[in-house]
Write a protein that binds this DNA or RNA. Structure first.
Lengths: 158, 158
DNA sequence: TTTGTTGCAAAACGTTTGCAGCCTC
DNA sequence: GAGGCTGCAAACGTTTTGCAACAAA
């Protein structure tokens, strides 16, 4: 697991500028959370992130939620609706714009990229709405859950 | 408020076929919920729907959740992540395919349609994934929340 | 020194579950 | 008549809140 310092240094500056503009304090907790988030490529939820952090920097769950809110505000992370009751988050910088395939049966989430879709959505503008970002979710049945791939499970074929 | 019987009759058949296939019971509660859902054009949540229903047909919140789950299964409704903690739903039949603009400041949701986007997404297929539907959410700042439209609110312009 | 931020614990909230009685099949 | 479905209420898990202590500015 290589620490992605390049990525963290640039987003740290963005976060610092954001906090300054909002006249909010630059606490070590906030930076520790941001750093941890930018060390992973995966989707994460608040509680998991909080647990993972305990090894290096002690932060409370309330502070994690607080900081996540700030990071959403300055678009350093995005929130995803998959994951049932639990909100999932994902860093935005250092990742190529991508979309998500969500299996309605098993809940598996897979990322994909499509240049044509990306270009089309990036150039779409509105007269009365200032776009910051967008999310595209494609729902369906993944390969593992396809009935044809489950020959042993005859009951599903009725 | 005109009752959209046309719409309801066709979706009722779809629901009946679904219940039959799943060997589930055709209870009056389930049909009453489906009918109520197809009488509105708006996004709704489980609790609001349950409250609105009390006037005509007494159903419990548990049954509303149960039925919503079934309607999601047979794609008669879709689930949306906007609305914070509360899941929002929307009927699928009798509505043109559309997308959503979500204001990050005030939470307002506006629908829009775009033929090019619709065509592109409809024709997109995957080798190992069988698409059933998709959702596109565009986030940003709506006209009402734009700083330039709030001249009186000087503090925001710092 | 001031006051925003933290950790903790309790509360709030939407959603799910267990169960006795009901009603579809 | 059997067993799936309902309403009710309690339970659950995530997120938010209140407050005293702390620390950034």
């Amino acid at each position: 697991m290589v620490k992605d310092d390049f990525s963290y240094e640039s987003v740290k500056d963005i976060f610092t500028a954001f906090l300054k503009k909002k006249k909010m304090r630059k606490t070590p907790e906030r930076y520790a959370i941001l750093e941890k988030i930018y060390q992973t490529e995966m989707h994460f939820d608040a509680e998991t992130l909080c647990n993972v952090m305990q090894n290096e920097y002690r932060v409370s769950l309330a502070t994690v939620y607080n900081t996540i809110e700030l990071l959403l505000d300055c678009s350093l992370i995005v929130k995803h609706p998959f994951g049932g009751q639990t909100a999932k988050f994902e860093k935005t910088f250092g990742k190529q714009t991508h979309h998500h395939l969500i299996c309605s049966k098993c809940g598996a989430v897979k990322e994909f990229t499509d240049k044509k879709i990306r270009t089309m959505l990036k150039t779409k503008t509105f007269a009365t709405f200032e776009t910051t970002h967008y999310s595209l979710y494609i729902y369906g049945i993944c390969n593992k859950c396809k009935p044809s791939n489950k020959r042993k499970d005859k009951m599903l074929l009725v």
